[in-house]
Design a protein around this nucleic acid. Structure first.
Lengths: 131, 131
DNA sequence: TTTGAGATACGAAAGATTTAGTATCTACTC
DNA sequence: GAGTAGATACTAAATCTTTCGTATCTCAAA
């Protein structure tokens, strides 16, 4: 038995760290720590621990360069985004992506610009499918 | 000081229970427990505890009827959906809802039908704004 | 080749979440 | 009004998450 919970979703702090790694492409503990907002104030060893956990869970791999480790995502951000949306859609939107979008476009805060972008995206996808 | 973490998001199990309450409108511990899939096999007292926690966190209120409590969401599902999407958009989509939809419509699994529904939703919203 | 700055390894405390047990309460029924 | 089925209240164990401290290791400079 490998893991009690087959969790393929990131915890809050894990996501925070993965986001920095996705932005950097790859990096050391120090690199990631430096990307965090200064008010975050995490101990260096804490950051190292989180990256170790991410490696245990196979979200990143590391290779040694000199005395430090360089961490690199094993999972593309796109892939994780899709995975997350599927999970959310299933748990909170009756497994109906359209209802997720419905909620999004109903949001009063959504700008006209964002709405236009969304329509363009959908149109492009529809054209590509038929063309 | 009220809470260490001002968490306005539900945990996994809390969401599971809120989903049943949203579907039911309201219900007792027994009602919610009966809605769960039979393989879930939660102890009655566990369900009671979870509802108590939801009440402590102000996600539900209860009123006594005879010897039981009837629990009722204080938060509409719609509202919580919007809140969740905002959070997800912020944490994983650069605070750009359009990029969230981009990922959604890029998903190969998405049906033509869902895509059409999404376009209709966006169109309707754009018309309402201008008209 | 010693040493020290800076890195990793490991363990563990503190907090949050999930689950359930035991004790107690409450409304009926006899 | 005593007994009991079924409900709640309270406590707490087990697990997971977040955080950091101490010990150790490693490269490079003196």
């Amino acid at each position: 038995m490998r893991q009690k919970k087959k969790n393929d979703l990131l915890t809050e702090v894990e996501l925070e760290f993965m986001s920095e790694l996705w932005a950097l492409g790859e990096g050391t503990v120090r690199d990631v720590l430096d990307q965090l907002p200064k008010e975050r104030n995490l101990a260096y060893t804490t950051a190292a621990t989180i990256l170790r956990i991410l490696e245990q869970k196979d979200f990143v791999i590391s290779e040694k360069e000199g005395k430090r480790h360089i961490f690199k995502p094993t999972l593309a951000k796109d892939t994780y985004q899709t995975r997350t949306l599927k999970d959310l859609s299933m748990k909170l939107f009756d497994d109906t992506p359209a209802s997720l979008v419905a909620r999004l476009v109903d949001d009063a805060d959504l700008s006209e610009e964002a709405l236009g972008q969304i329509r363009a995206l959908v149109d492009r996808r529809l054209k590509n499918d038929t063309g």
